[in-house]
Design a protein around this nucleic acid. Structure first.
Lengths: 342, 342
DNA sequence: ACCGGATGTTGACTCGAGTAGATACCGGTG
DNA sequence: CACCGGTATCTACTCGAGTCAACATCCGGT
C-alpha cells in the first residue's frame, strides 16, 4: 500500500518543496505551512492528516534557507574559539552546543588560531551568514569590539574578566581563582612559589597574575619567579624549564592553564624531579586532562556548563531586547595530588 | 570626511540590503550583485568604485540566507562527532574546519554523545538546514546508513574502516596500525602483550583487535589478556586495573586510543609500577595528549589533516556529481618513551 | 551617414516558505 | 429565504540576492 502510493507519484526531481506537498495533498501551499508550523491558522484534522501523509510519502523537508530569509533568523549561533583542539575550549564548545541544541539552535564553529585578523574575519563571516548570535572567546584579553559592533549582532564575550560596556560578557573571577590555588600551595608550607603565566596577543595584565601576587602579599611572602609563555602544553614546558633553571628555584609553581600545567609536569619529570615531592604544582581550568595527568593536577575548576548556558541564554535574551550584562562565575579548587595532598 | 559622508546618509533601520546600496550608489541592484560577486557580467571601473564606496559607507553585508536560497547551497558543512571534548575528535574537527574554511564553507558542529538516537536526530537536523554535506563520525563501527540515505545529502563517513557501498568513507588501516605498534613492542622483547580494547555500541570486531592478534600470531606468541572498555580515559583506567590484576600479567599493553593509553598510565602509576620499566605501553591516535603524558606515549598516528581534507574534498566533489569512494589512509608509528625506547 | 559589434546597465523574474487579507462554505436564526 | 458568524482554505505578496534577456550607448570602420 505504501509502495503503491509512492509509485503513483512521479519521483520529484531535485528537492521536494512545499508546492509538491500541496499538490500531492490537494491543498494550497499555505495549508502546508500551517501544518508544518502548527499555525498561525488552524487546519481541519482531516486536512492535516492528508498533508502529514504527503509530507511523509514525499519526504518533504522545509528549506531552512527560505525560512531564514523570511523570518530573518537562521536558528543558528556562531562560536569563535582560538583553538578547538585546546581541551578547555573543546569542553566549552560541547557545553555550548548542548545549551544551543536544547533551545533549537545549531552551532557554527570557527577557530581563530590565535590570530586576530582571522578572528575578525570569522566575526564578519558569521555575521554575513545571518547567525542569530555570536559567542566570542577572543584571542585578546581585551577583545576587539569594533568587528562585533559593526556586525550588529547579539554577542557574548567569553572568558572575559572585565566588563565591556554595551556587551554581554561571561567570565570567571580569575584573580580569586588564582588566589585560592596559591593560598592552598602556601598552606602546604611553600614560601617560594613561581608562576607560569600564559600570554595572549594583547599586553594587559591577566587576573591570574594579580591573584597570585595578592595571595603572596597577603601571606607576607616574596614573589617567586615568573615565566611568560603560551597557554599551551609546549608553553608550560618551556616555562617549566626556565623556572627550574632560575637562580632561586621555586618549590611550588602555579600554572595559569591545565595545558601549561601538563607541560610543566613534563619539564619537571624530565629534570628528574618529583611532583609534589620536589615541586608542587597547581593549575587553572579544570579540564579532563588535569585529572589524568601524573600526578593528577590540583586545579581551579571553571563552571563550564553553567557559563555556556548563561552565554547562550544571554544571546537569545539579547534577540528579545534584553540589555547586555556582565556575568562573573565563581571557581572551585579541585584538590588532587600535584599540590602535595595525599 | 568619513563622518561627513556617513552623516549624510539616513541611518538605515534594520539590515542594509542590496537595494539600499543600489539606491545610494545610483545604480541598479543587478550591478551591486555583479560587483559583489565579480560577475557574471563586467562592471565599468568607475561604477564599481561607486558601488564599493556605497558598500563601505552603508556597511552592506549580503544576506547569506537569500544567497543560499537562490543558489541552493548554504556553503555550510555539517560535522557530527560522538564527543567534541574527546581530543581526537577535537583535533579532527579543527582540521575539518580548516579544510572547510579554505573552500569557503562554514562548519556546523553537533555531538551525538555516543547516542545513536541523537546521531540520527542530528543527521535529520542538518539535512533540514540545507547543509551541503555531512561528515559523520558515527557512534557505531558500522554506521546507521538509513538516516543518511533518506536525508539525501552528500556525506562522508569518518573513522570508517570498512567500505560502505554508495557512501563516501574515510578511515585508516586500523589493523595495519595496530600491527606495527604490537610488532614494535615485540621488538622490545615482550612476549606477553595485553590489549586494552575500546568498545562502541555495535558489537562487530574492530580492526585494531585484529591487528594485535595478527602481530602476535606472526611472531608465534600467545595472545595476552584483553580488557574491553570505553575509548576514554576512565575506560583505559579500568582496563589497566583489570589487566594488572590478571593472572598472567602482561609486560606490555597496547591501548586502542590515546585516551585509553593515558588512563592506562594512571592505573600503572597508581599500582606503583613504572613505564616502560615494568610495563611498556603503546597506543593509537597520535593526539597531542600522547606527547605530554608521562612518559610520553608511543602511539600510532592517524594523518588527521590529510583525512579531513580528503573528507571535505569528497563532499564538495559529491555535490559536483563525483561518485562515492572509500579511502583508507596509512598510519605512522610515532616512537616516544612508553614503549621502552630511550 | 550608417552599420556591426562591443560594452555597460537595467528591469524583471526566480528561489521556497510565512502569513495577511480575501474568499468560500457551513449551519443556524429571525 | 436572506443574513450572520464562524471556520477552513486559498491567493498573492514578501523576504534579499542571482542572473538573463533586453535595452541603451558608444566607437571604429566602411
Amino acid at each position: 500500500m505504501y509502495s503503491m502510493t509512492t509509485s503513483a507519484v512521479p519521483a520529484p526531481r531535485g528537492p521536494v518543496t512545499r508546492k509538491d506537498v500541496a499538490r500531492f495533498a490537494g491543498v494550497s501551499t499555505a495549508v502546508v505551512s500551517y501544518v508544518v508550523n502548527g499555525g498561525p491558522k488552524k487546519v481541519a484534522p482531516a486536512t492535516e492528516a492528508k498533508v502529514q501523509d504527503a509530507i511523509r510519502v514525499l519526504g518533504y523537508r522545509p528549506n531552512a534557507a527560505a525560512r531564514a530569509l523570511k523570518l530573518g533568523s537562521s536558528e543558528t549561533l556562531g562560536l569563535i574559539v582560538p583553538d578547538i583542539s585546546n581541551p578547555f575550549f573543546s569542553l566549552f564548545s560541547h557545553a555550548v552546543e548542548d545549551a544551543a541544541a536544547a533551545l533549537g539552535y545549531a552551532l557554527v564553529l570557527s577557530n581563530s588560531d590565535g590570530n586576530l585578523a582571522k578572528e575578525r574575519r570569522n566575526v564578519r563571516n558569521l555575521a554575513a551568514r545571518q547567525v542569530d548570535g555570536v559567542l566570542l572567546a577572543s584571542v585578546l584579553f581585551e577583545p576587539d569590539l569594533e568587528a562585533l559592533e559593526t556586525a550588529d549582532i547579539p554577542s557574548v564575550l567569553l572568558n572575559q574578566e572585565r566588563d565591556a560596556p554595551g556587551f554581554n560578557s561571561i567570565g570567571v573571577d580569575l584573580a580569586a581563582g588564582a588566589r585560592i590555588a596559591v593560598e592552598h600551595l602556601i598552606g602546604h608550607g611553600h614560601t617560594n612559589i613561581g608562576l607560569a603565566m600564559g600570554t595572549n596577543v594583547s599586553g594587559s595584565t591577566d587576573g591570574r597574575e594579580v591573584g597570585w601576587r595578592e595571595a603572596l602579599q597577603a601571606a607576607g611572602l616574596p614573589e617567586g619567579p615568573i615565566s611568560y609563555s603560551a597557554f599551551t602544553r609546549p608553553g608550560g614546558y618551556v616555562a617549566g624549564q626556565r623556572l627550574l633553571a632560575s637562580v632561586n628555584r621555586p618549590t611550588a609553581i602555579f600554572a595559569t592553564s591545565d595545558m601549561q600545567g601538563i607541560g610543566l609536569l613534563r619539564a619537571i619529570h624530565e629534570a628528574g624531579l618529583s611532583v609534589p615531592g620536589d615541586i608542587a604544582v597547581a593549575s587553572f581550568d579544570g579540564s579532563a586532562d588535569s585529572e589524568y595527568s601524573w600526578p593528577p593536577l590540583t586545579t581551579v575548576e571553571q563552571p563550564v556548563a553553567a557559563m555556556a548556558e548563561a552565554a547562550v541564554a544571554a544571546l537569545v535574551g539579547a534577540s528579545r531586547g534584553e540589555k547586555p550584562r556582565h556575568r562573573i562565575f565563581p571557581t572551585k579548587l579541585h584538590i588532587r595530588q600535584s599540590c602535595g595532598c595525599p
